[in-house]
Design a protein around this nucleic acid. Structure first.
Lengths: 143, 143
DNA sequence: GTAAAGCCTCCCCTGCACTGGAAGGTCAAG
DNA sequence: CTTGACCTTCCAGTGCAGGGGAGGCTTTAC
């Protein structure tokens, strides 16, 4: 099938499929005499895997590693479970960060309701944001 | 004071300070005859505000808006509290997303322990990641 | 026969907050 | 006089996952 049909069947855009090929998560397909890409059912399965792995939070680079491991050796399951574990740990950390940031914002917000807007001074720009570090701050959240 | 001293006093890098100036969150300072930037205490206060606002989760663009509002009108407190509210709502959404993703990963991980690594098939790359959408999937998390 | 849709490659753009490096000017100490 | 620290501007790149559009073939439908 041609790239447009593959896109329709996977819900991806044509651009994205070509990008995946260049990113190394989708093998280069056969070409028709015209130069058009010609995909088989394997491409469909592959793209389903890529989508599922993305949904599980893996990056394209990691997915590429898994695929390479698969092609150069045995089943990459151990690698995959290690990636899942690492992502789970990352998520735990990020969730904790965001939750703390959420609490800080709530504190600022509550405090703001009791402040006089006219009392803002120029240098500090706005006294709703105290320039003395609020309790519980751990530096800017990485995004 | 020169830029290096300001950097030392704020804990930022010289590069970052110049970047902030270009990003519009720090006004252009006076210049010495040599062309060197020459900062006063206002710059220190301003950078403290920028850091505090970043800690509260605002982007540089938003901080720039707050500063512009401050310069072109009265106190920007209402603007700031609106931003804080928007960020709080965003955080709630992102925390929920990440928590759901975390639960999905935990499910995959638990399932993986009961699977046979040799049973991976080629098209699916690795059966630890099921290509049929797992229950509770809501699409890739935005990062 | 012609128009429209589809495909090709190529290169640049997005957001976010910086970071690195090149090529050169300035200033104080030894 | 030279060394070295400090400063200047400008350009480019990072990570991540694509998106936009130009300019030009190919295929399909009428």
């Amino acid at each position: 099938m041609r790239i447009g049909e593959l896109a329709a069947q996977t819900g991806l855009t044509v651009k994205t499929i070509r990008f995946y090929e260049q990113a190394g998560v989708l093998p280069e397909p056969a070409r028709r005499p015209s130069g058009y890409r010609d995909y088989d059912a394997g491409a469909l399965a592959r793209l389903r895997f890529v989508k599922a792995a993305q949904t599980a939070g893996l990056t394209l680079a990691e997915i590429g590693q898994v695929i390479t491991a698969r092609e150069h050796g045995g089943p990459p399951c151990r690698h995959v479970t290690a990636l899942l574990d690492a992502h789970a740990a990352n998520l735990d950390r990020r969730i904790a960060e965001l939750t703390a940031l959420r609490a800080d914002i709530r504190r600022l917000r509550d405090r703001a309701d009791g402040l006089d807007p006219a009392a803002c001074d120029d240098d500090a720009v706005c006294h709703v944001i105290p320039t003395t570090t609020p309790p519980g701050a751990r530096g800017p959240a990485r995004r």
